[in-house]
C-alpha cells in the first residue's frame, strides 16, 4: 500500500492545487491528467484510506470569517510537561500543540471565533499553570504555496 506509482504521484501533486467548482470537478481534473474520472476518484479514495492524504476538501481561513489565530509558546519544566500538556490541550480552542526542543518547549495555536477570545484563553492557561504564555500573533503572512512533491 506504500507503493505510489507515477499516476498516484501526478494525482497527489495536482490535487494539492485547487479543484474547480463545477458539477463534475474530478472529470475536469482527470481530463487534465489524461486518465478517467472513475480512476481518479478510486485512486484518491485509496490514498485517503491509506493515510497518504489526510483530508480532501475546502481549506478554510478562520480569519476571513472573523475568527482569530495566535501561536503561543511556553517554557514548561520537564517534570510538569505531561500535566501542563493535558491542561493546555483541555481547551477546545487549542487547535494543535507541538513539543519542540528548545527552552520554549511547548508551542500551540489558539483558534477562537473572535480576537478577544485569544487573550482570555491565554490568560486562563497562565492562571491554571502559573506559567507565562508568550503570544506570537501573525503580523504578516509571506506565503506563496507549499506543495509536497510526491
Amino acid at each position: 500500500m506504500n507503493a505510489l506509482d507515477d499516476t498516484d504521484r501526478r494525482i497527489l501533486n495536482r490535487m494539492q492545487d485547487d479543484l474547480p467548482i463545477c458539477a463534475r470537478p474530478f472529470a475536469a481534473v482527470a481530463a487534465e491528467l489524461g486518465i478517467e474520472e472513475v480512476e481518479l476518484i478510486a485512486r484518491l479514495a485509496r490514498m485517503k484510506a491509506d493515510g497518504l492524504i489526510t483530508r480532501f476538501g475546502p481549506f478554510y481561513d478562520a480569519e476571513a470569517m472573523g475568527g482569530a489565530f495566535c501561536l503561543c509558546a511556553m517554557a514548561v519544566p520537564e517534570d510538569r510537561f505531561e500535566a501542563v500538556a493535558a491542561q493546555v490541550n483541555a481547551h477546545p480552542e487549542v487547535a494543535h500543540n507541538y513539543a519542540r526542543d528548545h527552552a520554549l518547549n511547548m508551542w500551540f495555536v489558539l483558534a477562537t471565533e473572535d480576537p478577544a477570545g485569544i487573550a482570555s484563553v491565554a490568560d486562563c492557561i497562565e492562571a491554571e499553570t502559573g506559567l507565562r504564555v508568550l503570544r506570537f500573533p501573525k503580523l504578516r503572512e509571506f506565503f506563496i504555496g507549499f506543495r509536497v512533491a510526491a
Binding site: L12, M15, Q16, D17, D18, L19, I21, C22, A23, P25, L44, D50, G51, L52, I53, T54, R55, F56, G57, P58, F59, Y60, D61, A64, M65, V148, A150
Partner: peptide
C-alpha cells in the same frame, strides 16, 4: 452549493479545495 462555495472562495474564506498530504507518510 456551487454558488456559495464560489462566493466563499472569492471572499478568501476558502483558500482552495485540495488534498492535504500526510507529510510523514510521504
Amino acid at each position: 452549493v456551487m454558488d456559495r462555495l464560489a462566493r466563499l472562495k472569492a471572499a478568501g474564506v476558502i483558500r482552495r479545495i485540495a488534498a492535504a498530504p500526510n507529510h510523514y507518510r510521504l
